[in-house]
């Protein structure tokens, strides 16, 4: 029993890692641009397909392929910012519809390029860290956990300690006042979009060898990310990370001891409860939206 608990805890830490990478990106984009990026799950999917194309297809070394995936998806984010979100700045529903359109295009491209079926990716490493007979952590999962800790710490440093970070947070709080102080809103939007999309991309790339990669994999990712950002409080990065951990724990334990559908119901009910009791989320202030 103790083994099972420890193993489930490890699984939850792994799940929390990639969920928080996706959710933090979504929060960053929402905070700075004020749009809900429905295509965020598909950016995750694009990162996974970068691994399919480069690592499984062209035998590029795994970590090089991950870096390429990060850049590729980050650039997709820049494209979205320039082509969709900037022209639709004054039309919140417009940004939502445009991101849905973009999502369909990305899905269709994945189907056309790689087929509908799931793709097999050769494992990066077979190594397993065995804490005991039944408690094991595959090293491939450890990579995801390390990446999440390193990247989120770097992001925290960037946002709180650098000049760019100050500018970014300023334009998230009050775009007009920030613009009056000489901050380029377009520039901060570009940076936020690149980082936000890139985080989703790297999460997709790192988890690609561990999950079934298919054109529709973004769906469950975006639902999870929504739950997490609502529970954590829209616009709060710390909230998103704490909520990711909490959600991953609850979801993993309910899945292990009951079943997956029930875990989804519990997750959504938690979100609804937070919306009813404290719509700004556990860590949110009523800054935006």
């Amino acid at each position: 029993m103790l083994d099972l608990l420890a193993q489930t805890g490890l699984n939850a830490v792994y799940a929390a890692s990639y969920i928080s990478l996706v959710a933090v990106g979504l929060v960053l984009i929402f905070g700075v641009m004020g749009v809900i990026n429905f295509a965020h799950g598909e950016l995750f999917m694009a990162g996974a397909y970068a691994i399919v194309a480069l690592y499984a297809g062209l035998n590029v070394p795994f970590f090089l392929a991950v870096a390429a995936g990060l850049l590729f998806v980050g650039c997709l984010g820049l494209l979205m910012e320039k082509a969709l979100f900037r022209p639709l700045k004054d039309n919140p529903l417009g940004g939502l519809v445009a991101s849905i359109g973009f999502l369909m295009i990305l899905q269709a491209l994945a189907v056309m390029g790689f087929g509908v079926r799931m793709v097999h990716i050769p494992p990066v490493t077979q190594e397993v860290i065995a804490f005991s007979e039944k408690v094991r952590l595959p090293v491939a999962r450890l990579y995801v956990i390390i990446a999440a800790i390193v990247l989120l710490s770097a992001l925290w440093y960037f946002l709180k300690r650098t000049k760019f970070g100050w500018a970014l947070r300023a334009s998230a709080q009050d775009p007009e006042a920030a613009a009056l102080q000489g901050i380029s809103i377009t520039q901060t939007a570009r940076i936020a979009m690149f980082i936000g999309a890139g985080l989703a991309g790297i999460a997709g790339a790192l988890t690609a060898p561990l999950v079934s990669v298919n054109p529709h994999m973004g769906h469950s990712v975006i639902v999870t990310a929504f739950i997490v950002i609502i529970v954590g409080g829209v616009g709060s990065l710390e909230g998103a990370i704490v909520a990711s951990v909490a959600y991953a724990l609850v979801h993993t334990f309910v899945t292990t001891f009951w079943d997956g559908v029930l875990a989804d119901i519990v997750g959504l009910s938690l979100m609804l409860l937070v919306l009813i009791v404290k719509p700004t989320g556990l860590f949110g202030s009523a800054d935006r939206a």
């Binding site: 082509a83 969709l84 022209p87 639709l88 039309n91 417009g94 519809v97 445009a98 849905i100 359109g101 973009f102 999502l103 369909m104 295009i105 899905q107 269709a108 491209l109 189907v111 056309m112």
Partner: peptide
Amino acid sequence: EQMRPLIYGAIMILSIL
């Protein structure tokens, strides 16, 4: 057939823009 979602998505984006 395969390109339908792609064109549909493009129509959505173009019409909202």
